[in-house]
Write a protein that binds this DNA or RNA. Structure first.
Length: 224
DNA sequence: AAAATAGGGACCGCTA
DNA sequence: TTAGCGGTCCCTATTT
């Protein structure tokens, strides 16, 4: 195993650790958040909640750093996150497997492959389907999460929004890397068509009632 | 003041 | 062949 392979493996371990840690932490937070049924209360509260999530992410990054051993000493926690995200573009340049592509294959093993999606077979996958898939995947809760699910409001993690965008670009098979900026442009197009509404809150969007109902019923059919 | 985020026009690629 | 849809690119404006 050469140095870059060893480094890549370390990143994969760190990424999985982060995901598992955040999954556990965020579950607890959402259980509390679900007590809020009034949308206005939720709108006021989710900034605080998401702040907690971001803090947890930072904490878990630091833990991962400590657990990673001497080889990672040159990287601070932000550096680790950056390295993970940068791994996405490395794959395109090298044609090799990155931590990101490993994550995709994990997802696919879990049953959210393109062919398993509502739009996967025959129809082209649409961005809002893809995002819904991510939102329903607890392993992606550190990137994209409900605030809360009951009203269809979701929010991107400030740290990992580019991760979601990169996954989207990869899923579409884009040659050039997708960025949050470009993906958010596509999301804003949904405002006109009415599938997704932009919430006047940072990195926050909302599925329209009809879209959410459709997505949920498609998901129930898939699970049945 | 700078960085992050949002908005919008023009364009591209795919499909019916 | 072409029109329409669903993004994608890139630039500017606004917010944090």
């Amino acid at each position: 195993m050469n140095t870059s392979q060893a480094y890549q493996t370390d990143l994969e371990v760190i990424l999985e650790f982060l995901e598992e840690h955040c999954r556990q932490e965020t579950r607890g937070l959402w259980e509390n958040a679900d007590f809020h049924t009034n949308q206005q209360i939720v709108a006021d509260d989710y900034g605080i909640l998401s702040h907690h999530v971001d803090s947890l992410q930072l904490l878990s990054s630091t833990k991962a750093h400590q657990a990673a051993g001497p080889k990672e000493n040159a990287l601070d926690s932000a550096g680790i996150r950056d390295s993970v995200i940068q791994g996405m573009s490395v794959e395109e340049a090298t044609g090799g497997k990155s931590p990101l592509s490993e994550h995709v294959s994990l997802e696919e093993r879990a049953g959210s492959s393109p062919s398993a999606t509502p739009a996967g077979r025959g129809k082209k996958l649409r961005l809002f389907h893809f995002l819904f898939e991510m939102l329903e995947d607890p392993g992606m809760a550190h990137c994209l999460y409900w605030v809360p699910a009951s009203v269809g409001v979701f929010r991107f993690s400030s740290t990992y929004k580019e991760h979601v965008a990169a996954l989207w670009g990869q899923r579409k098979g884009n040659r050039r890397p997708m960025t949050y900026q470009k993906m958010s442009r596509a999301l804003r197009n949904y405002t006109r068509s009415g599938e997704i509404i932009k919430v006047r809150k940072k990195l926050t969007y909302q599925f329209s009632g009809a879209t959410l109902t459709t997505l949920r019923s498609q998901q129930r059919m898939k699970n049945a």
